[in-house]
Design a binder for these strands. Structure first.
Lengths: 136, 136
DNA sequence: TGCGAGATTGAGAATCATTATCATCTGTAC
DNA sequence: GTACAGATGATAATGATTCTCAATCTCGCA
């Protein structure tokens, strides 16, 4: 799959960079921590009042396809985070919602899982919840 | 918090064991793999046709409070899994949906996260996706 | 055994998140 | 410029979950 790049966000092939999309991508790049579709929608509307909610979902979906954005597992609201390319996990602050990435990972190795359970691991998700340095 | 126990499922204090709840708890105990609220509702209705969907959500919620059931992070349908007490993670088969528990875990140690990011880890969620022995 | 406080119930309405639809418009390769 | 595939916004539709409320039931205590 050929990929388009905009400020570090990766989009699938044949994705057009429309003004609506650029506004959303800018917001995502400038933002820290997690965001919901509706939050993004409301902020983007301040810049482009004609923008529709469906476009937000469509754009987030494109970013999810390439891994530039990932849904967060947490219990409460359905939120997303921006992701750098490559394997990493998230440190999510329960107090302020900030999200930090870390390359630290110790998920059980595929070899061990295979030997022990006959399970062929493909991917995994690991999120650590706690309190960030600023809130501590 | 005082706890009530039924076939290994733990419920909060003052939880009454009504026939509706017992039917739901039985289904959860007997079931393997993950389930959605609606699936549980439909199966339980075969045994007790008068049972309401709200009761399913209420019961699942009680089990979530004690950790006997946990929502699954996966992208598709919103599903839950039964959990044994204690720290463990899940191996989720992408082919058949079966869920296996494993005590294997190598999440980054709280000490390292503290030193490196100033982050105070409290909990973490780790789910491994792949193919189970039966489907391989 | 019987009582009563308080927990629980089902049905349906209400809310919230997401996806589908469709006629119209526009970015981009030529 | 032109064509056309991809993109758009409004709105309806769907799906998941929570709320509401009057009626009912459970369980500890007498």
């Amino acid at each position: 799959m050929d990929l388009t790049d905009y400020r570090g966000l990766v989009l699938p092939e044949h994705t057009r960079l429309t003004p609506q999309r650029l506004a959303l991508l800018d917001l995502i790049v400038e933002r820290e921590g997690s965001f919901t579709a509706v939050e993004l929608f409301q902020e983007a509307r301040r810049r482009r009042p004609e923008l529709g909610l469906a476009t937000v979902y469509r754009t987030v979906d494109l970013l999810r396809q390439t891994g530039s954005v990932r849904p967060l597992a947490g219990d409460t609201r359905p939120a997303y985070v921006r992701c750098e390319p490559g394997h990493h996990h998230h440190l999510i602050c329960l107090a302020c919602g900030a999200v930090e990435e870390t390359e630290l990972c110790g998920a059980p190795s595929p070899a061990v899982l295979r030997r022990r359970y006959g399970f062929r691991a493909e991917t995994h998700e690991l999120d650590v919840y706690g309190t960030c340095a600023d809130c501590a």
